[in-house]
Every structure is written in C-alpha cells, then in structure tokens.
Amino acid sequence: MTMTETAQAPADFAWDDHEIVDSSFTAVINAPIDTIDLPQWAFTLPEHEYQGCSPAHVAAGVTTAPDGKRMSINVEVIGGVPMVQHYVETLGEKHHLILDSVSDIFTPNGRTTIHVLWELSVKAIDDQRCEFTNHVRSRGTAEFIALLDRQGVPFDLFRAQRQPMSIAHNQSETPLFAASIERAALRN
C-alpha cells in the first residue's frame, strides 16, 4: 500500500488551513472494473458489512441531504473518540466517488465538528483486477479550533497526536473495504 495525494477539494476550500490528516492507501480488487460501482456499493452497504471493515466501525445507514443528494451516515470510534459522519455525495461515478462531511465528534470536553473528505476510486490493473484507492482528508472547522483554543491545546499538538490513529485506521480498513467492494462486484 502506498500514500498518494489524489483528492480534489472544492475550489473555495483551503485544505491547508488546519489540516489534520491526509492519508491514502490502495488495495487490489480481484474483479473486472466493469463489475464495480462505488456509489452503488456505498449507498447499499449493509451495516454488518460496514462493521466488518473495521473494529472501529459502529453503525452505517443512508439518507438524503436537505437538497436531495444521497448521504451515507457512518458512526465510528477512532482513538476513543466517537464520530458521526454525514457524508454527502459530491461526485458519484461508477469508478470514482467523493463524499463530503461535516462530522460530529464527541470529545471529553464537548461535542464539536471536523470536516472530512472521503474519496474512493478504482482503476483497472488488467481485465480481472483493479486497484482501489481509499483517500481520507480531514481538517478542523472553526468550531473545532475554538474548542482547542478554549482548552489551551495547540492545533499542531492535537494534529501530531491524532494523525497516527487516523492513518492506522485508514490503512487497516482499506483492504477490508476492497474485499467488500469485490464481493459486491462478483455478486453483480
């Protein structure tokens, strides 16, 4: 697995401002690319399948945003901190899915939010295999930065403590997501 930088944030969004993590890992899917549909997988993923992709995964469901866009609601606990992610589909192509969330996090010092961009993509390796990329970026929202400031916690210290947990989580879930996408592709 390798680290890469592939996500495209909206043009008016400055990811460098208070970026917490930017991690990307790849895994092989043993299925032809024409059998893979990432939005179909993400928006029909059974909760038990989501839970099987990481011990940190608690619950998953789907709904719609107020503007009618599809949403994936994921609950996970990373580093002892529960998160509720409200992923809104911003790009939904068969082989490229971008989900954007202002996620609730529940810290010992109160509830706050972080911004998470989750990008999934596949590209053909050959006619029977694909490379899956799981790219996650997160950054502190103004609300989150204010919470750290009230506590006297420097952002750089928080980031240094949070990054290893978030990166390890992404690294461990990537091959399990790939296996789940593979199972869905082979069922089709």
Rank of each mutant, 00 (worst) to 15 (best):
I33P: 04
V75M: 15
T6W: 02
V75P: 06
G68Q: 12
Q51T: 05
G92M: 03
G80S: 08
D37R: 02
W15V: 15
W41R: 02
K69E: 05
Q85G: 09
K69G: 06
H96V: 07
I78R: 02
G79I: 12
P46H: 05
V77L: 01
L45Q: 08
E93F: 04
E49T: 13
T4D: 04
D67I: 08
A9D: 09
P55I: 12
A7N: 02
P39I: 05
T64D: 06
A7S: 12
L38N: 06
I78Y: 00
I73L: 15
M83D: 10
D12P: 00
E19N: 11
I33T: 04
W15T: 13
E76T: 13
E5N: 11
I29T: 04
Q51P: 03
V28I: 15
Y87K: 01
E19L: 14
F13Y: 14
S72L: 10
M3W: 08
E47Q: 11
F25E: 03
K69T: 09
P82E: 08
D37T: 09
A65K: 02
I78A: 04
E89V: 12
L38H: 05
D12C: 07
E49K: 01
E49Y: 00
I73P: 04
D34P: 00
L45T: 11
T6K: 05
L91R: 11
V84K: 01
D67E: 12
E19R: 10
G61Y: 01
K69W: 00
N74A: 08
A65T: 07
H48N: 10
H96C: 11
D34N: 07
W41V: 15
Q8Y: 05
T64G: 01
P39H: 03
T6H: 06
S72Y: 04
T6A: 08
W15Y: 07
V81E: 13
Q40V: 07
M3T: 08
E49M: 01
P66S: 09
A14D: 14
I73Y: 04
E5D: 13
N74R: 08
K94T: 11
T64Y: 05
D34E: 11
W41F: 15
T63L: 08
T35N: 02
S24H: 10
V84R: 01
A11G: 12
H95G: 15
D37Y: 03
P39D: 05
H96P: 01
E49S: 04
E49C: 00
